[in-house]
Design a protein around this nucleic acid. Structure first.
Lengths: 191, 191
DNA sequence: TACTGCATGTAAACCGTTACATGATTCG
DNA sequence: CGAATCATGTAACGGTTTACATGCAGTA
C-alpha cells in the first residue's frame, strides 16, 4: 500500500472507474503512467480493497470497472488520520533559473516565456473545470459546496490549483520584466 | 546526464563545493539523498564535467571539493537552451483532500492545520534566506540584484518560493475556515 | 491512409529512498 | 554519555518512466 494506491482508492470513493479513467484523473495530483496503475489495481483487488467488473462495450474496447469495497474504505479512513507527508516538487526551471546569469538574456527569456504560456494555458483549463464542478454542485459563483458534498474535495483542490497557477503567472511576468532587453511582447502588464 | 546532474553543475557555477555541501543546497529545488549525489559526482568527474580536489581538514573529516570545468559549463549552456520540462508535484494532501467529505471534520481539520504550520515555518526560513541574499548582493529592500549578478538566480527563486508559500498559507486558512466545527484556534484571520 | 482515442497489459531501465558502514568532533 | 554535524561511500529495495505489444473505431 503506497501513496499511489491510496490515491486510487480516493478517486474510487466518488464513483467506480476503469484503470484507464483512473490513469487520466489522477494525473493532476499524483502523476503516474498506466503501466504503474494496472498492476496496482490487480493487487488492490487481490487484497479485497476494490472489486472488479468486466464491462463489455461494442464501439470501444471492453473495460474493467473497479469499485471501492468496505475494506478499501476502512483503509482510506485510517490513512486520512495520519498527517500528510511533505509535498515533493521537482522543477527543472528552478535549476535553470539558478544559473541564468551565465547565459544571454534572450536564452533565459525563452525559458520563462515558455513557462508563462504553460501556466496561462493551465489557468484556462482550471477555470473551465471549476465552472464544471460548480454546475454539478448547483453552486453559484463564489459559493462553496458544503463539506458533506462529494464536490467539496474537488472544489478546494481546484481552488488551490487556481491560486498557485495565478501566483506562478505573476512570478513569470515579474521575472520577464526584470530580464534586460525585453521586447515587452510577452512580458507586458505592469502592476 | 540526467536532470540532477545538470542541477549539480548549476550549483557549481557559483563556487566549488563538496558532495556534502551540494547535497544540502540542492534540496529546495531538486530533493536528493547523498547516496544519489556521491556516485553522480564521480561520474561527472569521469566525463570531465567537473574536477575534484581533496581538501584535508584537521577538525572535520577531509572532503572532496568539486569545481565546474569548461566541458561542464558547455553542457550547462547547451542544457539552458532547451525548454524546461513541466514541473512534477506530488502532494499526498491533495489526494487526501479529494475524499475529506467522507471523514469527520476534525480529522481533515488536523490535516490542513498541520500543513498550515509547515508552510508558516517555511515562510520564516525563506524570509530569512532572502535577507541573507540581499545582504550579500548589497541590495536594499525591494531592490533586485542585476541580471549579471550571481545573486540574480537565487533571488528570483527565493521570491518564487515566498510567493507560492504565501499562496499556500492563504489556501490552508481558507480551507480551515470552511470546514465546519472549527474552534478558530488555528483557523483565525478573516479576510 | 495516418493519427488519435479507448483499453489493457508486461519488461527493462532508470530514478530515488532506506539501510548498511565508518569515524572524528562538538555540544548539551 | 548520547546526539548532532561533518564527511564519504555501497547495496538493496521500491517507485517511475519508457518501450514493447495488441487491436478496434472514428476522424482528418
Amino acid at each position: 500500500m503506497n501513496t499511489l494506491a491510496y490515491g486510487l482508492l480516493s478517486l474510487l470513493t466518488h464513483v467506480p472507474l476503469s484503470g484507464y479513467d483512473l490513469t487520466q484523473r489522477i494525473q493532476p495530483f499524483w502523476p503516474a503512467k498506466h503501466s504503474q496503475i494496472y498492476p496496482l489495481l490487480a493487487r488492490l483487488e487481490k487484497y479485497g480493497m476494490v472489486s472488479c467488473e468486466l464491462v463489455q462495450q461494442s464501439d470501444k474496447p471492453d473495460k474493467k470497472v473497479y469499485s471501492l469495497q468496505e475494506k478499501g474504505f476502512d483503509a482510506l479512513r485510517e490513512w486520512l488520520t495520519v498527517p500528510a507527508a511533505e509535498p515533493v516538487m521537482r522543477d527543472e526551471l528552478m535549476l535553470k533559473a539558478f544559473c541564468v546569469s551565465y547565459v544571454e538574456p534572450a536564452v533565459s527569456r525563452d525559458l520563462f516565456a515558455a513557462r508563462l504560456e504553460h501556466y496561462r494555458a493551465k489557468l484556462l483549463r482550471l477555470e473551465d473545470k471549476i465552472r464544471g464542478v460548480r454546475q454539478l454542485a448547483n453552486a453559484d459563483e463564489a459559493e462553496t459546496p458544503p463539506y458533506d458534498s462529494p464536490f467539496f474535495g474537488p472544489y478546494i483542490m481546484l481552488n488551490k490549483g487556481l491560486m498557485v497557477c495565478r501566483t506562478n503567472i505573476e512570478w513569470c511576468e515579474w521575472v520577464l520584466s526584470i530580464i534586460p532587453g525585453g521586447t515587452s511582447a510577452t512580458a507586458d502588464r505592469k502592476d
